[in-house]
Design a protein around this nucleic acid. Sequence first.
DNA 1: CCTACCGATCGGTAGG
DNA 2: CCTACCGATCGGTAGG
Lengths: 235, 235
Amino acid sequence: MDQAVARTRSDPHAPVVAAKRPRGRPRKTADERDDGNRRVELVNAAAKLFRQKGFDATSTRDIAAAVGMHSGSPFYHFKSKGALLYAVMDEGMRSAIARQSAALQAAAVSAPSAFPAAALLRVLIRNHFDVLLGPGSDFIPVMLYESRSLTARQRALLARLQGDYEALWAPALNALSQDGQIKGPVKLARLLIFGALNWSVQWFDASKDASLDDLADAAMALFVQQPSPVRQSQA
Amino acid sequence: MDQAVARTRSDPHAPVVAAKRPRGRPRKTADERDDGNRRVELVNAAAKLFRQKGFDATSTRDIAAAVGMHSGSPFYHFKSKGALLYAVMDEGMRSAIARQSAALQAAAVSAPSAFPAAALLRVLIRNHFDVLLGPGSDFIPVMLYESRSLTARQRALLARLQGDYEALWAPALNALSQDGQIKGPVKLARLLIFGALNWSVQWFDASKDASLDDLADAAMALFVQQPSPVRQSQA
DNA sequence: CCTACCGATCGGTAGG
DNA sequence: CCTACCGATCGGTAGG
């Protein structure tokens, strides 16, 4: 495949062995090959398998096979199985943050006044379900359910991204809390709400009746109380 | 497998009966064989370790060491590591059901009229947090987060217990839904609420400020709307 | 329940 | 990225 194309590329550091193109390729060289693609393929395959079977139950051989490599080859791209796990989670978090940021920005730009806090929260929740349950959504579930296998440093790095993600929710949640539309301590409310959403990974069945929009509606109805018109004018 | 069940009840199919304590039963005087105790110790140790490190990352040697046995000995009591996992979950579910049933019964008997649906739900939620986060609460978290490692049959057996557990919640949830105190489709509301509660396993820190009562209060505030006095009299 | 042990698998590496 | 391989570990078993 494109592997063959890559092989034809001349490498300045290549040994002068001449001969033909045997199995022994030149060692890792200047990084200008299609390295990135194979790497991405590995991360995608790992995400899928980690989600399906769990980190511990997935062997590096499984991952290699999923992308058509042999057993030792993933270690050419990642120095350890744990590095692969981290890559999955890091990719998942960055993607989720980018997605939510874009959605919020679009809402704020298009019609700021038409987006009160409840509408913003609905956007966040709807996108969150998409990130969790939509097509190609293996990264965040892995992140949520396999973090036990991370090192302390990896966990700390990801905690920062998680903080960034949560920060996107703060304005909407705080506003709704102050309006009395979300009851109880905001901090606990946030944790409970995230739990309710994240748990959907365990039970949601795309082939069933409920759509992601239905889920978002149900969540909004459950967590956010309609503003009482009386009190609203009073404030 | 169902061997675990068979042991706890008297089951005509119990395969273990025929193979009575066979081989070199040594040292201790014949009275010392508190078979049941060692079994229970194993299940407890397994629950703790499965929760801490996960099922796959826990070796049967870890479990044996935790109760002072040697590596092969757990297999005298359980025919496989998977049977041990099932025993943990089965024990956890039966205990949780018994606990909730007793609490509900006590409430209904002591002062039925003082326990409207909201008060019942509060009891259920409070006990649920206790089962999840209280002292000795390793069984249900294992059940919630390690069910991927079960066989299909084990999963089916546990699903029945889970159904029994959920059934305890139905009266309260349905009543509140009909009263308009819980919004949205009941079925989705139930799943979201369970998720919110179950997720607490991931973040709750007993050494922190919030108590289990605080959690229960926060959950009630978030999910259950106060009945509007106006509408109440109208109905 | 211990002793002794086995086959399978796994993460990872050397070297081309 | 493949070939060939290794040390460690694991679930499980035979037999007393």
